[in-house]
């Protein structure tokens, strides 16, 4: 797999076929296809309830050309643990010989919130699998309700903008750090706009012994109130403004994957999306500044962790 170029990638068999029902401009098909292209071994997919599951498995059709299981919202990791145990048992008996890779996909609701316990359990047990969170920053499948991954001030259907309150009050949970706190070997943040970086990270995750976690920003035109054609640009802006830094945690070390001496202001990212529209109204300058300050503070912390001055 090492050093694969884009041309070779396009020749690989599609593990998630086209024809599924995800929205125009949805980022997760790109994320899923890129990640699954990162291994040539047989792979089993476990998927939490959410947009990815409902848009790809409408009976009697399926978009999955690889074995796939959906159990419930909060248990993609525990379910996959069962599949891995079955594999180990059959391998011990010599009834299966080839190496098999295991990957779980969940949205931010199924990962940061309701599925966190199941994920934490599987990480602690050291299951040999890759967990991928496609983070679109709210419960999009049920109609854009806030999750613990929703950024502060985002307008969602449960944190609407009103006279007394302007969007979500709380800051986004830092799941990447929570994953790292399990002392596993590989955790990374990625973005679909840089798919070679995503591919490389997925490859690393598949080849790491024990659990790995990839958290991938997944722009959602429906929930972010953005233009479908802008998905990749918005993902890029998220990285360029340090809203979504690209970094890895590998065997105890932090590695920064993207750095700009003069990062763009976060407003460049926020203004592409209707969910932050209220922040640009007169009188809300402080709300915007507060977000910029937090991003700057977190960026400094991350740089320190990565050994930069």
């Amino acid at each position: 797999m090492q050093g694969v170029n884009i041309k070779e990638l396009t020749a690989k068999p599609e593990k998630l076929a086209s024809g599924h029902r995800s929205c125009a401009g949805c980022a997760f098909p790109i994320i899923v296809r890129t990640i699954l292209a990162a291994t040539d071994d047989d792979v089993v997919v476990s998927c939490a309830t959410g947009c990815l599951e409902v848009t790809t498995t409408i009976y009697p059709y399926t978009s999955w050309n690889v074995p796939f299981i959906h159990n419930a919202f909060e248990n993609a990791s525990a379910t996959l643990s069962g599949v891995i145990a079955a594999y180990k048992s059959l391998k011990k008996k010599g009834r299966i010989k080839k190496p098999v890779k295991f990957v779980a996909f969940g949205g931010d609701g199924g990962t940061y919130d309701i599925g966190l316990q199941s994920l934490s359990g599987a990480l602690e047990r050291g299951e040999d699998f890759v967990y991928v969170c496609y983070d679109n920053q709210a419960y999009m499948n049920t109609g854009v309700q806030r999750s613990s991954a929703t950024p502060r001030r985002a307008d969602t259907t449960t944190t609407p903008v009103g006279e007394a309150r302007q969007g979500k009050i709380e800051w986004k949970k830092d799941l990447t750090k929570i994953a790292i706190a399990h002392n596993i070997n590989y955790v990374a943040q990625a973005s679909p706009h840089n798919f070679m970086d995503l591919l490389r990270k997925a490859e690393k995750a598949f080849n790491t012994k024990g659990p790995s976690v990839l958290i991938v920003l997944s722009p959602c035109p429906l929930g972010w109130k953005s233009q479908p054609a802008m998905t990749i640009k918005i993902a890029k802006l998220a990285v360029e403004t340090n809203f979504w830094p690209l970094y890895e945690y590998e065997h105890g070390s932090y590695i920064l994957n993207y750095e700009n001496d003069n990062p763009k202001p976060v407003s460049e990212f926020l203004k592409t999306q209707g969910r932050f529209k209220h922040l640009f109204k007169k009188g809300n300058e402080m709300l915007l500044k507060e977000i910029q300050d937090k991003i700057d503070e977190r960026w400094r912390q991350l740089r320190t962790l990565c050994g930069k001055k």
Partner: peptide, 23 residues
């Protein structure tokens, strides 16, 4: 020769059993 999974809740115990049985 059982592979014993000691999970973090009964919810995960049943979820893992589902995964194994589906395998």
């Amino acid at each position: 020769s059982t592979d014993l999974i000691l999970v973090e809740s009964e919810h995960s115990a049943m979820s893992a059993a589902v995964g194994a049985s589906a395998a």
